[in-house]
Each structure stands twice: as structure tokens, then as C-alpha cells.
Design a protein around this nucleic acid. Structure first.
Lengths: 201, 201
DNA sequence: CAGATCTGCAACATCGCTGTTTCAGTTACT
DNA sequence: AGTAACTGAAACAGCGATGTTGCAGATCTG
């Protein structure tokens, strides 16, 4: 059958399956990209047939995963009120939220997925919001007036990415304190001041 | 036949093939991880049979790729004389060198490859060298005395990674100036001072 | 309760990739 | 120049993953 767009409202029963499948896919693919549909199905407590009933291709499944995660990410940032709250507060809140989302949907947001049209659009919007926020921060003088905001954004992304992935194996002093708020503080601090000695204060 | 350890000295002819295959593998896999051996062979101007003659498994090929790239990376850093040259000079030189190597061997050094024993060892050594260098820099007072060097190293890696991968599509003002030395300067600067306004000077 | 929907099970066809073998022809070494 | 090494071509067996279908039984929904 393989219906990509749900013919119409999905039964409560089926919707649970979809969620389970997506969650399982994230879990399994995170530690084994290229895992088989069967492995995913098993992890979801479902048959491979059912997976194919909901997602025509493997591609469709991954797309749905990526799109959903992108939405969650956008929500995470929006929840920091980047347009209205005090810029640094918004940045900190957004960062902490993003860390949480990325921890839960690391694969779907990772580089291993070929972005669907939809997801790519969302990521662009996110980047836009991010730049707006950074611009507001720069107006406050917390970011150098001559700074290239695109570069700032990329550094910001890089820091988040770095904190996000080493969580498991490298039990260094960094990964130990897994509290998103602490990590967010560290990220923002490093972003703004680097690792050099503090000249101010 | 599939001989992993070259029975003995390889003929000049064959050695060229090996190099071509490795180079092609990097090229192809970089933009299509999971590409078939055939695609790699074709890109190398060689038959699939020949590839299998030199590398038993796909795994063996990727391993060789990763190991070779790791060695090049180590060389790139060593070339900065991290133990003897003035720390900041060494850091800058090493960074520029690493950018070059990563640009050429992005896949082999990327996260998509499951590190072989050998490659992992080399990467550990590199991390060690890196930490030594950072320690020397800290002694100079250019890095905060209370800074967590492991964190510093991870930030450093993240910055390099960020600069390395966006080179193509995102034609932003950053990727445009592809000169490794310029980029290295930017990385070191950001690492030490972040993006905030300069309080000194 | 009754009809629609969803699921598990089992089977099937197909596909692409892997890895191997053989052999005849080409290319490098001494 | 002669021997050994290397290569391309073609063919084969095998494997695992994919995608589909049919049906009987469980599960929701109004």
C-alpha cells in the first residue's frame, strides 16, 4: 500500500505506531546509520510490514524523521522568545533547549540525513531567527560591532555540535555535567569570550 | 585473492593503482557515503576486480583510507613543530596545515568512518600532541590559567570542523576566502577571544 | 454491537552489492 | 628478452534488504 500522505485522519492506534517507529528509528539509526528497516521495526515493537505501511520508502521514513526533528528544533528556539526577551537570556534559553532536542534527536538533525525540501526550509528559518537574535545581541555591544554574524552563527553551531556528540564515550570533565543549563552557559561564555584570560574584571 | 598485507614489495604499476583507488574512494565517498565498490573503481579508472585484489573488504579499503589520512594529519601537526616552536606560531602553522589535509581527506577523517585500531591510535596521539601544545600556550598566559584544556581542545576541533565542511554550498563571506592561512588566523583568534568586543587594545 | 481500520504472519519476487574465480592480454622488472 | 606481476573481462553464487501482496485476527470508533 505504502501511503505517504495519510489518506485521512489516522486512527489513534496507528498514530501510536507512527510515533513508536519514528522514535525507534532515531534510536537505532543514531548508533547504526544504515540499519535495516527490520531492525527499526523490531526496536519499535512492530513488524516490518507495518513500517512499510506507514512509510513507503526508507527515504520517506528518514524524511519524516528529519522534518519532525527540525520542527522540534524550531520550537525549541522559539521557546526562548528570541524576538522579545532580553537577547542574552533568549540565547541562553534557546541554547539549553536546543541541547535537549539535539540530545534526543541527534541522528535526525545530524549530517547523515539528506535534507528534504521541507526540513531544509525549516533549518533556513532557524538560521534566520538565529541571525536576528545575534544581531540584537550585537546591538547591545556584547558581540563586537564589526563581527561577521554569519561566522558567529557558524561558531555557535559548532560549539553546540561539539557538546552534543561526545556525551557517551569521552567521559571527560566536560561531558560529565550533562545539565543543559550548565552546558549552555559554557557555550555562550566560550562563544563570547573564547578561552583566553579575562581582561575585563 | 584479496591480499590485505601486500605479499611483499608492490610493483610500481600496482602501487599507482592503490593510490588512485584511495584517492577515488575519498572523492566518491565524500559526496556519497555508501557508494558501491564499482563506483569507486570507475572513478579510479580501474575495474572492480582490481579493487578487490588490493583490498579484501570494503572495510579494508576504508580502514586504509582512514589510517592514511590519520597519518597525514599527524604529519601536518608535527610540521608545525608543536614541541619546539613558539606555541602560538606552532598552533597557527598546525592549524593551516590541518585545514589543508582536512580539505583533501574530509571523508576519511570524518565521523562516517568506523576508526580502525591503527587510526584511532594515531588520533589519540594527535590529541595528546594537541594538548601538550595547548598547555604550552597556557603557560604563556594566552589561555586562561584555569581553563579546562580538554574543553579547549574540543572547541578547537569544532572550529576546524566548522570551517572545513561548509566550503562548497554556503558561499558566505567566510568560505569565500579559502586561504588556509587566513582561515587559520580566524580560528585561532576566535578560539582565544571569542566573538565579543575586544576589551584589551 | 457492527463496520472500518489496523496489525502480524508468511510468502514472494526483485534488486544491487559483495566476493571469488578463470583466463587471456598487457606491463613492469632484471 | 624472458619471467613474473598486474590488469580487464566475464561469469557465478550468495546474501541481505526492499517492497508487495493476501488473509485472518485483533483493535478501535461511533
Amino acid at each position: 500500500m505504502t501511503r505517504t500522505p495519510p489518506g485521512r485522519p489516522l486512527r489513534a492506534d496507528a498514530e501510536r505506531s507512527v510515533r513508536a517507529i519514528l522514535a525507534a528509528a532515531e534510536r537505532v539509526l543514531a548508533e547504526t546509520p544504515g540499519a535495516s528497516m527490520e531492525q527499526i521495526a523490531e526496536a519499535a515493537g512492530v513488524t516490518r510490514t507495518t513500517v512499510h505501511r506507514r512509510f513507503a520508502n526508507r527515504q520517506a521514513l528518514v524524511d519524516a524523521l528529519a522534518t519532525g526533528a527540525a520542527a522540534k528544533l524550531a520550537e525549541a528556539i522559539e521557546d526562548g522568545h528570541p524576538g522579545t526577551a532580553p537577547p542574552l537570556v533568549a540565547l541562553h534559553r534557546a541554547t539549553a533547549n536546543v541541547l535537549r532536542v539535539k540530545a534526543a534527536w541527534g541522528f535526525a538533525l545530524g549530517p547523515a540525513v539528506a535534507q528534504s525540501e521541507r526540513a531544509a526550509r525549516t533549518h533556513d528559518e532557524i538560521a534566520g531567527r538565529c541571525l536576528e537574535l545575534l544581531a540584537r545581541i550585537r546591538e547591545q555591544g556584547v558581540i563586537a560591532a564589526d563581527a561577521d554574524l554569519e561566522w558567529v552563527r557558524r561558531v555557535y553551531y559548532a560549539l553546540i555540535g561539539e557538546v552534543t556528540h561526545g556525551t557517551a564515550a569521552t567521559a571527560g570533565a566536560v561531558a560529565a555535567d550533562a545539565d543543559p543549563d550548565v552546558l549552555a552557559a559554557r557555550i555562550v561564555d566560550t562563544l563570547l569570550h573564547g578561552v583566553g584570560p579575562r581582561t575585563t574584571r
